[in-house]
Structures are given as structure tokens and as C-alpha cells.
Design a protein around this nucleic acid. Structure first.
Length: 572
DNA sequence: GCCGTTTTCGGCCCGACTGTTTTCAGTCG
């Protein structure tokens, strides 16, 4: 993939060029081009081969100059201009720019004065107090550098959405309980339900910003304060993530919520539409001339005023939703209240922690119409997989429970897909099962071709209702096995097998991108929690958030159906 | 260096916060 390589070079050029005030905008052009290329699904080398330089000129942010740089890189493997500048500044910008409060100008100053090229050298210089004597730096600068480096080491990456959402809600609860805020809301990637959260954004309306900020920094989960003013305070939380609290004036709340929810790419486009309509949109309001017309504390007003449908936060990634909103074609996305049951649950009989009765009791609290108990099968020894005999006996128990139950309990199993694609269950149990989830749990190191065939073989048995956690990825842990999702989708369509959207915080599998990719086929999805105890039920909202990020509507999700319709779908 | 039913020239987001200054430069979102 040449895109990443070229984007890295353009980013480096952005850092180097932005040192000089005169080349500020040239630098910005490189940065914009880098972002553009990085987010492209198709490799520029393929585009160039197919369409020549004309194809490159169609990429947003690429003009004659940058197109010729790309051609130069594709043909010679080098960009002369970059080689020269990189020789003059052999600095690891990518690494250094990850440090809080450290930008390209500081990097270049320290390179010129002390020859510092990377994070390790910077750390050493700060520890030896060499930095405080450089003009523009001081003791605090050294402290900040060391603090940022240790912060970077401790964070490692982004936290899971489940963790971020819980933390954000706790903060809102804390701020609201003090009676100092009139309104408080989550913004940022947490509100967009992105699978991981880089930092938590909270907005608040308060007539007493000073007091609220003072209170915020005393919150029990705050590890340290990074910056603190009257409109914005940033803290480091014990979870390792940072949290921004912004205090907003009432008349700016809607526009601030829109602005700080992002994504950045989405906002750039929306603001451009505002300009085209002779407005100015920023975090303080939607302005016609000097007058803020968005005083209704409402995002919806802003989108409507710009001629668009309201766009749900989960869709705001500049993946075509803006064009859709301009044509008034934003669909009603699936909502958590549409869910009528959970079809992937475990009990004590395999590796769950609660009894069947306890799981049923909690489902009743959720007002579900039905659930499916889907314990593991024999092959998965590590999860106390049930033998055929045990499963048949268990099905008798469920038949008995169903007689006196207000909720319909489906007899299910999460059946292992064995190495050759056959199912880990024999005929007698298969004949009694209502809801069969098939999942890969072992031999996950197969190559793409073999794994794809293995899963297809399982689907071709004609017994599989739901393909469980289809890619097997674990967020921040392992990438998931390689599969040809298009090929698998075609078989799902043919055999009426639904893709699972597994709501477990570290899974969220399928993810939003795969949902967008597969939903062009005539297939269904099942949003399940894969709960191993009663608390797991509550993760349904993460799966729904993921489904909404994949633009799914209720009619594509089988566990929004009423019981009779679901039975009909599950019938094989 | 890119871009254009406001422009082939003149814009390109800008305000808040911090540290090192003593009115400002750098960073961030």
C-alpha cells in the first residue's frame, strides 16, 4: 500500500514546512493531501496505472504539484524535495508529535539547538536539564515533556467504548448532582459510539464556570490536571485517558455540541455548506452576519437550517451521510427500543456465571419478548462446552421452563465451527435446536482462503442461523482472522444466515466498516450481547451503536422481529 | 500548494490556554 508511505512523507513535509510562517499554507496543503490519501480505499499506484496523472488530480487536495510528487515516488521510490528537507531535518516527527503540548516548531528548535531527533533523545535531554536553557523553554517545559512521555507510555492506546462511555456518564452524574450545571452532555467520539475512545469530551452549561471547573478537577477518577481555565479544563483520568470539560453559554449549546461531536472531516464539510449558504458555523453558533440564529440549544436546527436532515451522531464520519442528508434521505436508524430479545447468552451450564433462571429473570426486567440460551458445544473444552447428551437434557429443562414463562426461551447453542467447517453437534440435538449460532474459536491462524472456505462450509450445512462474532477480532488485542467478507456475504444471503453484531465491548464484531460493506447484500444481522452473566445484557447499547454506525435500520436486524416472525426466519 | 456559481488571485478557522514573557509564541481541537 503506497498510500500510507506517501501520506507519511506528506505529513513530514507539513511539519517541516510549517516551521516557516511564509510556507504555512503550503504546509497545510501537504497535511490536507496526506489526510486525503490516507483515507482512500484504493491505492494511488493502481489509480495511476489505470488513469495516469488525470486520476491523481481527481483526489481532493491533490493538484499539479503534489500529483507530480506522487508520480515521482511511484516511479523512483523517492521525492527529491523531501529527501533534501529530510536531510536537513532528520527528525522523527511522527513519534514526537504524539507528545502532549509538543509540536513541530518545538521539535525543530530543539533539533537545531541540541540535535534532538526522537523521543528517547528528548527524554534524555529533559532528564539532564539541557532544555531549560533554550530560549522559549524553561523548567516547566522539561517537566511537561517528561510527563507527556510517561503518559504516552502508560496509555499505549485508546480505551474501549464501553469503558469511555461508563466513565463519561459517571462524570456527568457527578457534575449534575452538584446542581451547578443547567445542562450537560457527552460529545466527541464517545457520542459517535466509535469503538475506541481517545479522549472523553463533556460539555456543560453553567452560570458558574469557575466553581464547576474547581469541582471537576477534584473528581475521584482524576489523576492529574493538564490544563485548567474557565471555559476548558483537561484532566488525565485513572483509566489512562484524558477528559475535556468545556463550559458553554446557553445560546451556544447546540452549535458547541455539533462542533465538538465531530468527526473533524464531517464538520469541515458541514461548515463549508454553511459558508455556501452565506452563514458562518462555529462552536459558538450559526451566524448570519453577526447574529447567532441558532439560539435554540438544538443541533437539529442547525442541520435543518443548512438544508439537511438531522444526522445522527453515529453517522458523522463523512462517509456519504452529508450528501444523503442534503437529499433528505437519512434513514431512521435502529434504536435500542426496537430490540425484542437477545439471541446469544451463556449460563452456568457452560462458561456463564448465572443460572438459566437468573438470566431469564433479568431478561424479563429488560422487557424482552424472547431470549435464546446459546451455550458452547463439546469441542470448546476451555469454556466447558456441553456434550450432545447434556445439551439434549438441557433442552428438556428449557421446554419445561417455557411452560410457565412470560418470556419465550429459544433452545440454542453456540456451536463451534471445526477446522474443516463442519459443525460440532450431531443430528439429534440439531433437530431440536431453535437458534443456532456458529462461531470459530480454535485454529484461528489459518490463511484467508482456508478460513473463508471453512466458514462457507459451515454455512453450507444449511443449519446456521447466525454467524457468531464473524471476524474474531479483539479490540486493542488481536486483529481477527482474515476472511473474504464479500464471498461469505453471498453465502449468508443464499442460506439465510445472519451476521452477528456482537456487543461485547472488546468485540463489536462485525464492526461498522464491515456492516457498511456487507449491507449491500440482501442479508440480515443479529445484535447480541454474548452475555456470560446478567450484567452483560446492558452492553446491547454498544452493539446498537455499532449497527447505527453501519447505517442499519430495524428491518435488517432479526431480533427486532416479534416472536412469530423470528421463528419463521430461524426455520431451516 | 490547492482551489474557484463570490475569485486564475487571494484566501486558506481561530480562540483558548500555557509557559516564558513582560506582549507573545506554540499547541490544540
Amino acid at each position: 500500500m503506497k498510500n500510507k508511505e506517501i501520506a507519511d512523507i506528506f505529513n513530514d513535509l507539513y511539519y517541516i514546512l510549517s516551521m516557516d510562517e511564509k510556507s504555512k499554507f503550503e504546509a497545510l496543503a501537504y497535511q490536507k493531501a496526506a489526510r486525503s490519501i490516507e483515507s482512500m480505499p484504493e491505492d494511488v499506484s493502481i489509480i495511476y496505472k489505470r488513469e495516469g496523472i488525470e486520476g491523481l488530480l481527481k483526489i481532493p487536495g491533490i493538484g499539479k504539484g503534489l500529483a507530480s510528487h506522487i508520480v515521482e515516488y511511484l516511479t523512483t521510490g523517492k521525492i527529491e524535495k523531501y529527501e533534501e528537507l529530510k536531510n536537513a531535518y532528520p527528525i522523527d516527527f511522527n513519534g514526537l508529535m504524539r507528545l502532549e503540548g509538543f509540536g513541530s516548531r518545538k521539535a525543530i528548535i530543539l533539533y537545531n539547538k541540541l540535535g534532538i531527533k526522537n523521543v528517547e533523545e528528548l527524554k534524555k535531554a529533559a532528564e539532564n536539564h539541557e532544555i531549560r536553557d533554550i530560549p522559549g523553554f524553561g523548567e516547566k517545559s522539561e517537566e511537561l515533556i517528561l510527563k507527556s512521555i510517561s503518559l504516552l507510555d502508560s496509555i499505549g492506546g485508546r480505551i474501549l467504548l464501553g469503558t469511555g462511555l461508563a466513565e463519561a456518564r459517571k462524570i456527568i452524574w457527578y457534575l449534575t448532582a452538584a446542581n451547578l450545571v443547567n445542562r450537560c452532555a457527552i460529545a466527541g467520539s464517545t457520542r459517535r459510539m466509535k469503538e475506541t475512545v481517545g479522549d472523553i469530551d463533556i460539555l456543560a452549561i453553567s452560570l458558574n464556570p469557575e466553581k464547576i471547573m474547581k469541582m471537576f478537577v477534584k473528581f475521584e477518577d482524576v489523576k492529574s490536571v493538564i490544563v485548567s481555565g474557565n471555559t476548558k479544563t483537561t484532566v488525565l483520568l485513572n483509566t489512562g485517558t484524558t477528559c475535556d470539560l468545556r463550559v458553554i453559554k446557553p445560546e451556544s449549546f447546540g452549535s458547541a455540541l455539533q462542533y465538538f461531536t465531530g468527526s473533524k472531516d464531517h464538520n469541515v464539510k458541514v461548515r463549508k455548506i454553511a459558508i455556501d449558504n452565506k452563514y458562518k458555523l462555529n462552536e459558538y453558533g450559526l451566524f448570519s452576519g453577526d447574529r447567532n440564529i441558532s439560539v435554540e440549544m438544538d443541533e437539529k436546527f442547525i442541520y435543518n437550517q443548512l438544508g439537511m436532515d438531522y444526522i445522527p451522531p453515529e453517522m458523522r464520519e463523512d462517509r456519504g451521510e452529508i450528501e444523503m442528508a442534503l437529499e433528505h434521505k437519512i434513514p431512521r436508524l435502529i434504536e435500542i427500543s426496537d430490540i425484542k430479545g437477545d439471541l446469544h447468552l451463556h449460563t452456568k451450564e457452560s462458561d456463564g456465571m448465572n443460572t438459566t433462571e437468573e438470566m431469564i429473570a433479568y431478561a424479563l426486567k429488560k422487557n424482552y419478548e424472547y431470549i435464546a440460551i446459546t451455550n458452547h458445544t463439546e469441542h470448546l473444552k476451555i469454556a466447558k462446552g456441553m456434550t450432545e447428551k447434556e445439551l439434549i437434557k438441557y433442552f428438556d429443562t428449557i421446554d419445561y421452563l417455557n411452560k410457565n414463562s412470560k418470556i419465550k426461551i429459544l433452545k440454542g447453542a453456540e456451536v463451534d465451527i471445526l477446522k474443516d467447517g463442519s459443525l460440532d453437534l450431531q443430528d439429534e440435538a440439531l433437530s431440536r435446536i431453535d437458534c443456532l449460532i456458529a462461531s470459530v474459536h480454535t485454529d484461528t491462524g489459518m490463511n484467508r482462503e482456508k478460513m473463508t472456505q471453512r466458514i462457507i462450509n459451515a454455512i453450507k450445512t444449511g443449519k446456521v442461523n447466525i454467524l457468531g462474532h464473524p471476524t474474531g477480532r479483539l479490540i486493542n488485542d488481536r486483529p481477527g482472522y482474515e476472511i473474504d467478507i464479500d464471498e461469505i456475504s453471498r453465502y449468508c444471503e443464499k442460506y439465510k444466515t445472519a451476521f452477528e453484531i456482537n456487543s461485547s465491548p472488546a468485540r463489536l464484531d462485525l464492526n461498522d466498516e464491515n456492516i457498511l460493506k456487507t449491507s449491500k447484500y440482501n442479508i440480515y444481522y443479529s445484535v447480541n450481547t454474548d452475555s456470560h452473566n446478567i450484567y452483560g445484557y446492558d452492553f446491547m447499547e454498544l452493539g446498537i451503536g455499532t449497527a447505527r454506525r453501519g447505517w442499519l435500520t430495524k428491518n435488517r436486524v432479526i431480533n427486532t422481529m416479534d416472536y412469530q416472525a423470528l421463528l419463521k426466519f430461524l426455520e431451516k
